[in-house]
């Protein structure tokens, strides 16, 4: 649970840097907040505000930014494996994000997974928009987030959470192969689609099913 708090704190810091980026791109505060609450998917929001700020028509910017969230489809599948059926799924779906999925992933039992998923998801639904609002209001007052290394926070959080899930060498090998594929693909596929290419490494698992722990 302490992990959840720290993750939410990190998310609000990233939210501040997103708010600053939105401010710099000339996005009004209300639009920034609508994005933070109803899209609730950091990297696609960054991309959207940057594109709109650069003069891309918002509708076009929305369609390209939505591609970044293709991985949410896979995450949806993953959360459905431990969440309860019923109407709450319609809310749970909106809460899908890298961090909540990762924290649930490393739990062993289903009810722990469910708990961690909901608590982190709701925590991020609160901490991300708060960060975004603070960043949007402080635009021009506080220093460039790049100078503070904020862009290194997302990969660091994901590594810290996902590391324990690589319990055995075989899983680690598949994960690494996937990362290499994603990195190789990124320069040539639309922005945000690179990580999904990593899934092409999954059939490797089937070669040695027995070793799954």
């Amino acid at each position: 649970m302490r992990g959840v708090l720290l993750v939410c704190a990190s998310v609000s810091i990233m939210g501040i840097s997103y708010g600053l980026a939105a401010h710099t791109a000339g996005i009004p505060l209300w639009a920034n907040l609508l994005l933070a609450v109803f899209v609730l998917a950091g990297s696609s929001e960054f991309l959207f505000v940057a594109a709109v700020g650069a003069g891309v028509p918002p509708i076009l910017a929305a369609l390209t930014s939505a591609l970044v969230n293709t991985r949410c489809f896979v995450f949806g599948f993953s959360i459905a494996s431990f969440l309860k059926q019923g109407r709450s799924l319609w809310m749970a779906g909106h809460l899908i994000n890298d961090e909540a999925v990762a924290l649930a992933l490393v739990e062993g039992k289903r009810d722990r997974k469910r708990l961690l998923y909901w608590v982190t998801g709701v925590g991020i639904l609160v901490s991300w928009p708060i960060g975004a609002a603070v960043g949007g209001m402080l635009g021009g007052v506080i220093p460039d987030p790049a100078a503070l290394g904020v862009d290194a926070v997302l990969p660091a959080v994901l590594i810290a959470i996902a590391y324990p899930a690589m319990k055995d060498r075989w899983t680690a090998g598949v994960v690494m192969a996937g990362a290499v594929l994603a990195v190789a693909a990124t320069p040539v596929v639309p922005v945000g689609v690179g990580p999904v290419v990593a899934l092409a490494a999954l059939p490797l698992v089937l070669l040695r099913k027995k070793e799954l722990t």
């Binding site: 990297s43 991985r71 896979v74 995450f75 599948f77 993953s78 494996s81 890298d98 999925v101 990762a102 992933l105 862009d151 997302l154 990969p155 994901l158 590594i159 959470i161 996902a162 899930a165 690589m166 899983t171 598949v174 994960v175 690494m176 996937g178 990362a179 594929l181 994603a182 990195v183 990124t186 690179g194 990580p195 999904v196 290419v197 990593a198 899934l199 490494a201 999954l202 698992v205 799954l212």
Partner: peptide, 17 residues
């Protein structure tokens, strides 16, 4: 298998980011 897939995706996000 889904767990391995999810880990793969998360680490790929980290690597590309």
């Amino acid at each position: 298998l889904l767990g391995v897939g999810t880990t793969t995706l998360l680490v790929a996000v980290a690597a590309t980011a």
